[in-house]
């Protein structure tokens, strides 16, 4: 086996994963803080006002990265859930379930910041257009996954059931992404493209991209932090868990 595959196998061990997460979560957290300061400084002080939307467009620097995260986390959660379902890997199940509340949080931020951008620009906090509606459905799917996970007593059965629900809900992700092309929406189309040119000036694009990386680091930090708690709870009867929490007493 090559080194990367070997490392992946090691990560499947709850004890190894617990230590790994404890080591890397703070790094991700501090990088998030640093990038947020840089990104928002550039966005708030360096980027010029928009020629149509004035200063109100500055909501973009949190709204768009949050919207990207709401979908990114959903895909990551589904992937982890799929691995958990197929190979019955405990750590994968936990990563999927630890992702759900973070995804729900970013979806909520997307909806609220979008509403507070829509009010001055469109004249309404909310309109039932395809982009907004499909994003609202995403929030309900996240809440459904969290609810299902909480409702079943056995933690592993619960994780598998909720992962299955996540995979079914995956169909909503392309709908959100293409909603602005498939339907006529009040919500504007995309201005940032991975492939091809982005129709946005670098002075506005850079803070946006920095915030996109920052929010990903927040996710990494938060998911590791949550997964650590869940692993500790699930493995509380194992001797390694006791060693981790009370190093002095474990030997007695």
């Amino acid at each position: 086996m090559n080194k990367l595959t070997l490392w992946f196998h090691k990560l499947g061990s709850p004890e190894y994963f617990y230590r790994f997460a404890g080591r890397w979560a703070p790094w991700a957290g501090w990088s998030f803080a640093l990038l947020t300061v840089i990104g928002l400084y550039l966005g708030m002080f360096k980027a010029p006002p928009d020629y149509q939307q004035g200063e109100s467009y500055r909501i973009i620097f949190i709204h768009v990265p949050s919207a990207w995260m709401s979908m990114f986390i959903y895909v990551a959660m589904s992937a982890a859930g799929f691995v958990g379902l197929v190979w019955r890997i405990k750590v994968a199940e936990i990563m999927a379930m630890a992702s759900a509340p973070i995804g729900a949080a970013f979806t909520l931020v997307t909806l609220v910041t979008g509403a507070f951008w829509g009010k001055p620009m469109w004249g309404a906090y909310w309109v039932w257009d395809a982009r907004l509606t499909s994003e609202l459905i995403l929030l309900f799917i996240y809440l459904g996954i969290i609810g299902l996970y909480q409702a079943i007593e056995d933690r592993r059965t619960a994780a598998r059931a909720a992962s299955l629900l996540a995979l079914v809900g995956l169909v909503n992700i392309p709908i959100i992404h293409f909603s602005v092309e498939w339907w006529t929406t009040l919500h504007q189309g995309s201005t940032v493209n991975l492939m091809g040119e982005s129709s946005m000036h670098p002075s506005m694009l850079w803070p946006l991209l920095i915030m996109a990386v920052a929010t990903k680091l927040y996710y990494v930090m938060n998911v590791l932090q949550r997964a650590r708690n869940m692993i500790l709870e699930l493995e509380s009867n194992k001797s390694w868990a006791k060693t981790v929490l009370q190093p002095a007493e474990a030997s007695r």
Binding site: P49, G54, E55, I59, I102
Partner: peptide, 30 residues
């Protein structure tokens, strides 16, 4: 914010409040 202060700062407030709570809750849980 060119007259948009309420909307801009409410949005930023929501962002940091939600992310902050998301950070503190697992710490308390721990």
């Amino acid at each position: 914010m060119g007259g948009y202060g309420f909307y801009v700062w409410f949005s930023y407030g929501t962002f940091f409040l939600v992310l902050g709570l998301g950070l503190i809750m697992p710490m308390l849980k721990r």
